[in-house]
Design a protein around this nucleic acid. Structure first.
Lengths: 333, 333
DNA sequence: AGTTTTTTTGGCAGCGCTACCATTTTATGG
DNA sequence: CCATAAAATGGTAGCGCTGCCAAAAAAACT
């Protein structure tokens, strides 16, 4: 048991007692809110220091109106996308004394529902979600809750309140148009669970539609019902090429998958891009330092987090903000 | 403003009123604690459903003794290591109705200090940190706080309370011994900020000591004072080889850096491992699907998170648990 | 010195819940 | 049928703060 647990913590009342002032005075000094004299502040701070007082935010939040908690309910932590969003939001929130709380859904809408319910019990100032696809009950709860909602990383749909992101449909289309422009005609797709990662699903369907509209339907595809990974990308490309060897380009559901595909080509001596072109999504930093820069779409993930946080601390009115994306031509397609 | 904010939320008292029972009865039913009849439960649940009641955990936590918050104060979210740890801990904590809260230090001890202080204000059941290196005041606060402390990902030092991880010194030594055993004699190092990432620092110094003890001192090194990244790994190797072209092996501070080095070799046609061997640290999944499997050390990151969480929910006595690591021979060294 | 204004301060009622205790109701047993 | 145990229920005092209001002290004017 090592440390001294079970002792009751120092309270504001004890600090007030020790400093010889009233409780509300201590509260005012600590929050630097309202007025108090310099010597009072010194006496309070001395007592705080001496007793090692740490304010209890649970009590503080209960007593005051609105909390300063922001609840993130995200699909995954392994996916760098969400880590980037959190990182972007972190700084702004911290600056404004907000506290981030999070839970991971594993791309499961039912889990999202349960986690949102659980999060709302903390009476957060805002709930930050990925995308627009939620269960009916999730939407109902969020509407009923007295808090802001930010749907991040997508703008193709109807927002509950605030939304910050970019168009996955447009990204899918841009990817297809790029490959067509470059002259590829036998195009395949390697992806991960589209039912769950609905943003990847939107890119995929938009990609296919664009190809079809240009008279070049998708030649073949290999889709795993699992989370994306470098490993799945490599395996996927292997299976795809075994079935359809004459492909001249492959669109991957994201850069991780594409990296797997790239490794596969290296291992088998498939020359990129002359023999096979590779295109990803996300624009991870590592794409830039690959022997051949990865052709992909860079998404403003950190900026999404930053802006989402900013909208919350500024209590901005409901709106949808499209941050766009950037197509990186690279050397693999 | 879109949604219906500013309405006051339904309270337990209102549910009690609506169900025609006492407040404590509602509380008991909702927490499934204490005794109540079946028909009372039904009436309560009906009222809860009808009013859309969501319990207020802020109030609940304040009223009850210990909280069910677990505070993670981690160096980075971009580094997959910490995402893995969080993922491991997440499931267990959720199962036991604990809520994870987190903050990111950017490997800065001063920021860690500030964030720990801020976290303690939430009166968490436990604070989860990376490693043993903390400021004096951080340690003092944690000792004074009435909560458990878990130091993760390291076991080389003295634990405050609980510790779960593996020995970075042993990992550094094992890496050096492996390279020596394979016959490499001109060994270099490419790393990132060792002052801040003290675990990487421990691996490095232990690596060097082992080399020296075997009469093969480190030939050269290239250290960035920044966070690790694939990009830095590639640049680092470039600089290192420009200065010391006759190296036969390079030890990287982690797999991301090593991947950068690998890319560099591919780009320049440096044959691995005959011309240059590469060794990493972490054992990321992608290392397995590289054209040549990366030689590295696999660390039990998810397991660390799982066990850390389990110790907390079980209220285990103070102890240090070494989960060990696994050296993966791979094909790059 | 007496007013008026401004600044500083303390008291205390909640915030919404849980924990404890007292009370009522129901079941058990001789 | 009454005594006794067990189960179910309600009342209420806090948990540690904040926010409001009134009171006291200090400053600024006549």
């Amino acid at each position: 048991m090592g440390t001294s647990r079970n002792q009751t913590a120092v309270t504001l009342a004890q600090v007030a007692e020790a400093a010889g002032v009233g409780e509300s005075t201590v509260s005012r000094v600590l929050r630097n809110h309202g007025s108090f004299s310099g010597k009072t502040r010194d006496r309070v701070m001395t007592a705080v220091e001496r007793l090692g007082y740490v304010p209890n935010r649970i009590a503080g939040t209960l007593a005051s109106t609105g909390s300063r908690l922001v609840a993130f309910v995200i699909p995954s932590l392994s996916n760098i996308v969400f880590a980037d969003v959190l990182r972007g939001a972190g700084a702004t929130l911290e600056e404004h004394q907000y506290q981030a709380v999070f839970a991971v859904t594993d791309y499961d809408p039912a889990r999202e529902e349960a986690l949102v319910a659980s999060m709302l019990a903390w009476r957060p100032a805002a709930v930050m979600l990925a995308g627009y696809e939620h269960t009916e009950r999730t939407i109902k709860m969020l509407r009923a809750a007295n808090c802001r909602v930010v749907e991040m990383l997508d703008v193709d749909g109807t927002a509950l309140d605030l939304a910050v992101g970019f168009s996955n449909r447009a990204a899918g289309r841009a990817s297809a148009e790029f490959l067509l422009k470059r002259g590829y005609r036998r195009i395949g797709y390697v992806g991960h669970d589209l039912d769950r990662d609905t943003r990847a699903g939107k890119r995929y369907s938009s990609f296919c539609e664009t190809l079809s509209a240009n008279g070049v339907p998708l030649a073949d595809r290999e889709i795993y019902r699992e989370a994306s990974s470098v490993e799945r990308g490599r395996l996927g490309l292997d299976l795809l090429l075994a079935r359809t060897p004459d492909l001249d380009a492959v669109y991957f559901s994201n850069d991780d998958m594409a990296l797997g595909g790239y490794f596969h080509c290296l291992a088998l001596g498939i020359v990129i891009p002359s023999q096979l072109a590779i295109f990803g999504y996300n624009g991870l930093d590592l794409g830039r330092v690959m022997p051949q820069a990865l052709s992909t779409i860079r998404t403003p993930r950190v900026a999404t987090g930053q802006l989402a946080a900013k909208l919350i601390v500024d209590n901005a009115p409901s709106q949808v903000i499209d941050l766009g994306f950037e197509l990186i031509e690279g050397a693999t397609a």
